[in-house]
């Protein structure tokens, strides 16, 4: 549904986006993570034909995003991160106006979402709305649009916890209807909850692609051995040695069925064992944590769609 090939956007010497190659399937929810200025919004604006790529190209539903931007915007609904609405309009008028710009057909649905799900009073002028209410209004329109792709740039940034929950539900519903969703945000737990895959950006580069379904099967195993720990594990166990610690301790990353690993560990001199999971924060911190600086990624590896998941990056880390 969405494809980018070496997509780059430079402003003079500043690279806002560098060599982004990614493919997002129909019906997928793609989480987009990264701090401010990491290139998420630049990517999104390239996708809807607002920015002309310096190099590379992007396609949405087979249409080139720059040359055929109008066709792209017919199948895309976009919620901007920095939302500005017309204050003199009422909520009703605003939804009617936005609906008219798409040629009509979604007004009743947007009103229903705004009033019933998000609890907005649409008779009030938009200027009397709080920031969160304005965001709800725009979200109602975005989810009501009869489109194939939803691009939500920080959709929950101004919302209260219950509204955030409703937005996540709406994202799940959109996915259920076969819509493709790009969900850009800073709240890792939200991105983790809804995304099929997550892309982590840093300084205009896509550093990592994570399959969240695989990640949900991920377990971290901390093992203390009596004597020196093994150098490696049989490949069929799908175990990666994440860390070797003092005291003959290994931190293992494991996916798949637990029984073969436990059986294998039963053959080794294991003193102690702890099994846990890893949240998205830990993964995110590998690229944006306090210990990470520019030297860490002086030569960032290109993500490979076929080798996506933690393995690629983890092997890099294991080698450092």
């Amino acid at each position: 549904m969405i494809e980018t090939f070496g997509l780059s956007k430079h402003y003079g010497r500043v690279a806002a986006l560098s060599d982004l190659t990614v493919s997002i399937s129909k019906g997928e929810v793609f989480g987009f993570l990264g701090p401010n200025g990491s290139g998420k919004t630049t990517t999104i604006r390239c996708l809807i034909g607002m920015l002309r790529p310096t190099a590379g190209r992007a396609n949405v539903a087979g249409h080139d995003c720059w040359r055929d931007g109008l066709a792209v915007r017919r199948v895309v609904s976009y919620l901007p991160g920095e939302l500005r609405l017309y204050g003199y309009m009422s909520g009703f008028s605003m939804l009617e106006f936005l609906d008219s710009l798409r040629g009509g057909g979604s007004f009743e649905r947007s009103v229903a979402i705004a009033e019933r799900m998000l609890g907005l009073d649409l008779k009030r002028k938009v200027r009397t709305y709080s920031t969160g209410m304005k965001q709800k209004l725009a979200l109602a329109q975005a989810f009501a649009d009869p489109v194939e792709v939803l691009i939500l740039d920080e959709p929950t940034s101004a919302l209260d916890p219950s509204a955030r929950h409703q937005v996540l539900e709406l994202v799940q519903q959109a996915k259920g209807h076969g819509q493709t969703v790009i969900f850009s945000g800073h709240v890792l737990s939200e991105v983790e909850a809804v995304s099929d895959r997550v892309g982590i950006m840093r300084k205009g580069r896509l550093m990592h692609l994570e399959d969240m379904h695989l990640r949900r099967n991920l377990r971290m195993v901390l093992v203390r051995f009596e004597g020196a720990p093994p150098i490696d594990f049989p490949p069929q166990l799908d175990v990666i040695i994440r860390d070797r610690r003092e005291g003959n301790v290994l931190l293992l990353e494991h996916r798949g069925a637990a029984a073969p690993l436990l059986s294998h560990l039963g053959t080794l001199p294991v003193l102690d064992l702890a099994i846990g999971t890893e949240d998205l924060r830990t993964l995110y911190d590998r690229f944006h944590g306090p210990d990470v600086d520019d030297d860490t990624f002086a030569d960032p590896a290109k993500p490979d769609e076929n080798a996506q998941g933690p393995a690629l990056i983890h092997q890099e880390f294991a080698g450092k």
Binding site: M50, Y78, P80, L83, R84, L85, L98, L101, R102
Partner: peptide
């Protein structure tokens, strides 16, 4: 400048 161009230009309008 006031950010409202996004509203119009993100819709299917040439």
């Amino acid at each position: 400048e006031r950010g409202t161009l996004d509203l119009a230009m993100s819709r299917p309008m040439s």
